[in-house]
């Protein structure tokens, strides 16, 4: 297994700031927009983005929540063990709002499919967009594409992408692990 740093602390901050500016460009003062982080790993990014947006837009209310998609996954009964769910916390109505889904890594797109399904339990949004920190291109199983991308990378199946967060792991970094090829 060889590893490569794709985003260091400095670029990490720059990337999150850029994502925030892109969001502001499209959503103005977030009047009709809510941010929803996907449990468990997307919540870190969504918290960071929300915090940054509140600094850029002082005095504006920016609604944010967390969505757990465990019960909506399509691989239930196809895995070795059941997945323990995390908490969903959406204390607002998403009917006719623009929803920004936030996740850390976009890979097969199956998580996002489940999230779109789970979202319906909270109303019918007028629009749903997707923000990801890392887009693993060419690996999608479903026709799902992100609207805002922190960094796009080319990977193969055996690669692993790991995002670490200051809050939980002590460092903001993104690593790519590649399985060593045998000569």
């Amino acid at each position: 297994m060889s590893s490569r740093l794709i985003l260091n602390q400095k670029n990490f901050d720059i990337t999150i700031n850029r994502l925030c500016f892109e969001l502001i460009e499209n959503h103005d003062d977030f009047n009709d927009t809510v941010i929803i982080g996907l449990q468990p790993r997307g919540v870190n990014l969504s918290n960071r983005i929300t915090k940054q947006l509140r600094q850029f837009l002082p005095g504006k209310t920016i609604l944010s929540g967390n969505l757990d998609i465990t019960f909506f996954r399509d691989d239930f009964r196809r895995r070795e063990s059941v997945i323990v769910p995390s908490a969903t916390q959406i204390d607002f109505i998403i009917e006719n709002k623009k929803v920004i889904l936030v996740d850390d890594v976009l890979y097969t797109g199956r998580t996002i499919r489940a999230a779109l399904d789970a979202l319906l339990a909270f109303g019918r949004p007028s629009k749903v967009e997707l923000v990801v920190l890392i887009d693993r291109k060419f690996s999608r199983h479903l026709p799902i594409e992100p609207d805002y991308v922190g960094k796009a990378i080319d990977t193969i199946m055996s690669d692993k992408v790991k995002v670490t967060w200051n809050e939980t792991d002590g460092k903001d970094e993104v690593w790519l692990f590649t399985a060593q090829k045998e000569e």
């Binding site: 909506f72 009964r77 323990v84 969903t88 789970a118």
Partner: peptide, 27 residues
């Protein structure tokens, strides 16, 4: 403990406007 933790999540589900999840659709 695991049953309790999962039940807490389901309690949240059954208090939503749409009280249904698709987990056991093939059972």
């Amino acid at each position: 403990r695991q049953i309790f933790a999962t039940a807490a999540n389901f309690k949240d589900v059954i208090n939503r406007p749409i009280k249904k999840v698709p987990s056991l659709r093939d059972i």
